[in-house]
Design a protein around this nucleic acid. Structure first.
Lengths: 227, 227
DNA sequence: CGTCTCTTTGAAACGCGTCAATGGCTGTGG
DNA sequence: CCACAGCCATTGACGCGTTTCAAAGAGACG
């Protein structure tokens, strides 16, 4: 669980990594604990050490949109480095987790002292921006089955290898979560997963999903759903 | 047409503005001319002086998604200040236009010399990121009529005042453009605009739209479409 | 003045959301 | 340790908003 190896610390000498880590305080989270709500003043920059966070937005009528999941090495609240006043998304632990926390003032000091660290954080934010644009594309042009297949493969890319070529998604995830990730309903997700399970593409238990045939899933992106 | 008054130059002393402007070269565009295609190496930072650019993405199958329109004072290609390698969206002039162009090296030099300028550019980019997230929300939760009303009001906010309380959208815009902005088809847009024109909410001629009753349009956001 | 682009309107099909009802798994408290 | 209460998942039927396809009209440009 060595955060200092992650892409946020790429290109930094060991002494810089040590100095930056020295500015952080660890914080423990229980499952379903809220780390920071969307719209709250952005006072702290976080990096996940253990466990997973769910980063999501809530619409006025209570519907949830999951932006992404953050696992070990992933940052949350990078916008404090850009001087944004509030968090654009909420962060909640989906399982017991441990995060490192840097106060905004500390981030100011450290980014000034280590420009490469600032560049890495900004880089990460830029990636999330292009991700958001890509998502608008997908929402506009693709069917639910295509988006769901894409989402599963994306989650599987950071998953845990199982027997054979199977990969299990690294954190607990419900049908509702998958629906909130792909902008659909849990019913449609359930129907698709049932069908794909019959085809041997995936396997699932309550709160967990494994990908058995990633090549077959990839086809579902190109060829919507015919049968 | 004084760019130096825009929000990109907020908080900068006059001499800094002059120094920054001195680093730019003007460039003229004809209607429908492509300034930079999505995916091309990000070598230049632009600010619109006259006219309007259409910033859009194209999906593999040729469908277009318009991210936004950029008018006088609006930047394009701010990601060069973040060190991103390529443009995430294409920029094309929708009418004859004039832009200022800074080469990447010049941007490096000027942002180092004037940190406030860098902060303004980053600020702008952060806004576009939250915009993209908001758009995902809208695409997921709202009907076409709501999104279209929202889009028209957004465009009208930068429009040209006409007789009475009418506001004309500042640049040429087709039904297809509105469809690409709201992620729908030109047919659905045409139907909605026809109905709203009967209700006296808008007026339109080929390639142009005016908002006559912005309060009435705003209602269409909250109350989808009943009649 | 012809051609091309933009627009309108209708009719039909379809994907997916909504609603309803049921069943299974999990963790907690008696 | 068992049982109950919640949460999560499944499946079917139905309806509705939009897309799709087709065909024709109208304005703009060279």
């Amino acid at each position: 669980v060595d955060i200092a190896q992650g892409r946020l610390f790429a290109g930094l000498p060991a002494e810089a990594r040590a100095a930056i880590l020295a500015g952080a305080a660890p914080r423990l989270l229980t499952a379903r604990q809220m780390l920071a709500p969307q719209g709250a003043p952005a006072t702290t920059f976080y990096v996940v050490q253990v466990g997973h966070l769910k980063l999501s937005q809530f619409s006025p009528d209570g519907r949830e949109i999951i932006a992404r999941f953050a696992g070990p090495g992933d940052p949350y609240g990078g916008i404090v480095a850009l001087g944004q006043p509030t968090y654009p998304v909420s962060a909640m632990a989906v399982e017991p987790a441990r995060v490192l926390a840097w106060p905004a003032a500390e981030v100011q000091r450290l980014t000034a002292a280590y420009p490469q660290w600032r560049a890495n954080i900004v880089q990460e934010i830029a990636r999330h921006m292009t991700d958001a644009l890509d998502r608008v594309q997908e929402l506009s042009n693709e069917r639910v089955s295509q988006r769901l297949a894409r989402t599963l493969l994306r989650l599987g890319a950071h998953g845990i290898p199982r027997s054979g070529s199977a990969v299990e998604i690294a954190h607990p995830i419900t049908r509702q979560d998958l629906a909130d990730l792909t902008s659909t309903t849990l019913f449609t997700v359930s129907r698709l997963l049932s069908r794909w399970e019959e085809l041997g593409l995936i396997a699932s238990t309550r709160g967990h999903v494994s990908i058995l045939d990633s090549a077959g899933l990839r086809q579902k992106i190109d060829v919507p759903e015919d049968e």
